[in-house]
Nucleic acid binder design. Sequence first.
DNA 1: AAAGAATGCGACTGATTATTCGCGTTTGTC
DNA 2: GACAAACGCGAATAATCAGTCGCATTCTTT
Lengths: 217, 217
Amino acid sequence: MKRSLDRKTKIALEPRKQPRQQRSSKVVDRILDAALTLTREQGTKAPTTLAIAQRAGLSVGSVYQYFPNKEAILLDLARRWLSSFPEVIAKRIKVTPPTDRDEFRREVRKLFIDTSRIYLDNATLMPVIEAISGNADLRPIQDAYDEEIVALYAAWLRHVNPALEDKIAKRLGLVMMEVGHACRLVGMKRDRRTYDLIEDDVETMWLALVSPYLKLD
Amino acid sequence: MKRSLDRKTKIALEPRKQPRQQRSSKVVDRILDAALTLTREQGTKAPTTLAIAQRAGLSVGSVYQYFPNKEAILLDLARRWLSSFPEVIAKRIKVTPPTDRDEFRREVRKLFIDTSRIYLDNATLMPVIEAISGNADLRPIQDAYDEEIVALYAAWLRHVNPALEDKIAKRLGLVMMEVGHACRLVGMKRDRRTYDLIEDDVETMWLALVSPYLKLD
DNA sequence: AAAGAATGCGACTGATTATTCGCGTTTGTC
DNA sequence: GACAAACGCGAATAATCAGTCGCATTCTTT
């Protein structure tokens, strides 16, 4: 009852320690991994504080030494998940300077596949993240990563056609990101066949949209 | 404790009355409306059994006279929501036999706007439905409505070009539905500007995909 | 208008789960 | 090797809700 007032008056609890900073400690990652694994293996409702703690080889109390509350765990999990997108995209983009139309198409396809994997491998994670999507802290994180992704795509497009207006590159990058995300989202809920079909057609659509702006052989 | 055993052994409770059938009674709809309104106004966690009951001007006990459990309420809510898609699409499609490219484009746009509204007006409902998406009863319902939607789109495309192969019409219809759904999903989470931008480009992309198959002036 | 049926009620139960806190255990320091 | 500080523990607490059930009220029927 001591804290109940605090909670009700929205005085968010601070992390018990100063955990987020001292990444040195692997414990934080162990906790996040535990939450992730549980979600993957046993679904949305699996990551209770107790289950997470046990899976991480800790007690509940110890978990609360690194996170102020459960939502903070999920928030960090979301953060980690989101960060893998620009990571994966950046990796692929660095490798490739597409020149002709065919290579461009192949690269687009690879990008789709790479980013799709992030979704597919974490299918059960999505609803969990959804559940905290109301959290005000998540939006700016999401936005920051998205901006990064758009910038990566835009840079890539300008690499293909350096004469491309920056503004247009960004717009196309945005569409590429959003449509990509969107299709993966839907794809995740369907069977593999539907997913492939859509991915294929979406690729075609995307190329049709972009082609007029690029000078490809 | 009497029922707890039942619950654990997964013997699902039957509706107390035979409510679903006798739609005559407006009470069922009142309950669904209450759940919907609460979700709209106060978010995902708002529709508790108590809150729903009170909002519907009933007591908890009475609610359980019409629904076997909470999930059944949400399931019906999802059902109602899903049914509005083919409804809206059918309404618009009946009115329009597009002939030339411009009219076709305008109609596509209207379809996008109409269906988008279903999402935008029920933005907070989505996570709630997500939460029960594991429910085995939801998938067949979803599939049935989706098939209806695809059929509507396909019929429309064949109306524009009667020579269009049925198989292709269906595929395009599927893409139209999925991509549409997908973009709305993502659009829902963004500001209006981003949404409009995407909607615009998606329309362009969609037309690029479809045009080769249609004979438009 | 009275008996009985149907409907409605809502305090209560039972279950789950996030969060706490006082006490043990380890670890680093002199 | 003794002391304290940090770390870890997990039974106990408290909050939240779904779902129940016996009593109260309204409606139906004769």
